[in-house]
Amino acid sequence: MIARATRAIIGRELTRMLRQRGRLLSAMIRPLIWLLVIGGGVGAMLEQHGSGDYQQFLVPGLLCMVLLFGAMLASLSLVYDKESGVMRMLVIAPFSHYWIILARTVSAAIAGLVQVLLLLAILAILGYLSLPIQFALLALGLVLTALLCAAFGMLIAVFSKSLDNFAVIMNFIIFPVFFLSGALYPLEHLPLWLKSITLINPFTYGVDLLKHALISNEAGALAPEFSIVQGIFIQIGCIIAALFVACLRFTQAPVMESLASILSCRRQ
């Protein structure tokens, strides 16, 4: 029974994503601009110094960027749903309320993964994926990073009253998380304060895991910086912690009651 409900929640997420073609298109174009424009420019500069292939280096980070935008924004839409019909259906459905959080996390992660697969296909066609690729590790890295982004999106969503200022979320969460993750440059030689921030950013470990999968033969400065085991366990730990707190918060009686009264309020 709960499986059917979860499937329906995932199905709804995908239907909505596919209907918003503009958003899907921009989700594909955004990383390609980074790859071709920034990657092309910085890559040309680095090549003169004899460094490795910068565009190849960018690919893992850009895959993670798609997950960050795709999965986290899908999770954050829970804040809008707090006033919408879907939430009314969900709170009175016959399963525990924490399941709303878990199912929405999984559906947001899947929405992110569909986008990332689309980008992988585009990158393969454009010739930006170079062998050897460790496919199992790539799959694991993508799934974990998608869940991580979705879980943290959910954590923000359950504590937010409104997302009136979407730019705030973009500027103070999504961009910093992306910039401070090793997606754009290696972390090793960063100043200490900057490096400390990147080390507590769980997204960093997702990017690194994908570097292992995609550019493991990259030598020197552009190589992965953490071990695979480290990446996997830190991510799993962060996912569980974020979901635990999100579920706990969402199912607290006063939180659920204020949600119920928002849902019952007649908008004038």
Binding site: M1, R4, A5, R7, A8, G11, R12, T15, R16, R19, S84, G85, V86, R88, M89, L90, I92, A93, P94, F95, L263, S264, C265, R266, R267
Partner: peptide
């Protein structure tokens, strides 16, 4: 207030609601 998803069709809404049960 309505407990429907405005972005889905009539049939999709009822299928979604049914699946939740």
């Amino acid at each position: 207030e309505s407990a429907l998803d405005r972005s889905l069709t009539v049939a999709e809404n009822l299928h979604f609601a049914g699946a939740l049960y």
